[in-house]
Amino acid sequence: MITLKELSDVNLFTAGHTACPGCGVAMSIRNAIRVLGKDTVVYVPASCAVVFGTTFPYGAWKVPFFHTAFENTGACLTGMQAAFEKKGKKVNVVGFAGDGGTYDIGLQSMSGAAERNDDVLYICLDNEAYMNTGIQRSGGTPFGAWTTTTPVGKNIQGNRRFKKNLGDIVAAHEIPYYATLSIGQPLDFIRKVEKAKNIKGFRFLHMFTPCIPGWKMDPARTVEVTKRAVESGMWTLYEIENGEKKITYKPGKMKSVRDYLLMQGRFRHMSDEDIKTLQMWVCKKWNLHYKEKGAPEVCEIEPPEEHHAVTEEHREMHGP
């Protein structure tokens, strides 16, 4: 297993890219590509990663980069892999798609590649909303979260549905490898990327990637928030290898989901009742993953001082 010390210092995703400060996607891409190495070809569907990674005539990628559309990551990986195989070249064919590009518009294409068990690595960078277009709800948006399409209104506050269980959907294709990752657990992160790299067939790495403007948080806390997500059960670290599920990191005593929510402006409006609802969802998930009941009392949450938002600011950054 590669340790931090052994990890390559070669920047295959160079500095000078134009992601927001503290971007969880940039962090995850940089480290994934460090492990994957230079014999890699990437496909990136429409997303922030296209824009901050390549803007003609400049690019941050030092490995071949391809982009055409939003909903076709799976298919493009299939096409690239077939062509490389025909030419007798051994190349890591890797897709970096967002949650919108995977949970929603790209689900069919991903499913096709998974079902065919094409020899590709699909990486989902899950920041829980359509961030490139300016923070709109996706199938990966958690319950209660503010987005610009699940605004905090007088009648309806935030997203009313729970995050789609993508892991089970992907795993149901009976692929050789599915794993969830968090940048906050570096060794686990590196190990899973390395493992996925060396398995043949369709591999899926599901990375939890905070978005500073989308989650309305301090850029310095990108890594911290992923750790809190894991400690609270909002994100679980596990892998499914040939149908066998294994928890790869088990937190100690379950922390209240409130600790996680309070770090982020997108949840700041949530009512006690909504927090309780979300907490129950998390407890169910915790129980499912860790096979233990863990439902700490839902604490009272202090009401927000004011309706938090810098929505215009975010809109400005991300375009209409």
């Binding site: 890699t40 070809v41 296209v50 690019g59 490995v63 071949p64 980069f65 391809f66 982009h67």
Partner: peptide, 12 residues
């Protein structure tokens, strides 16, 4: 698209 001579195709 060839790792021996990286290219970017379809950039923004």
């Amino acid at each position: 698209l060839d790792p021996a001579r990286p290219a970017m195709i379809g950039t923004f």
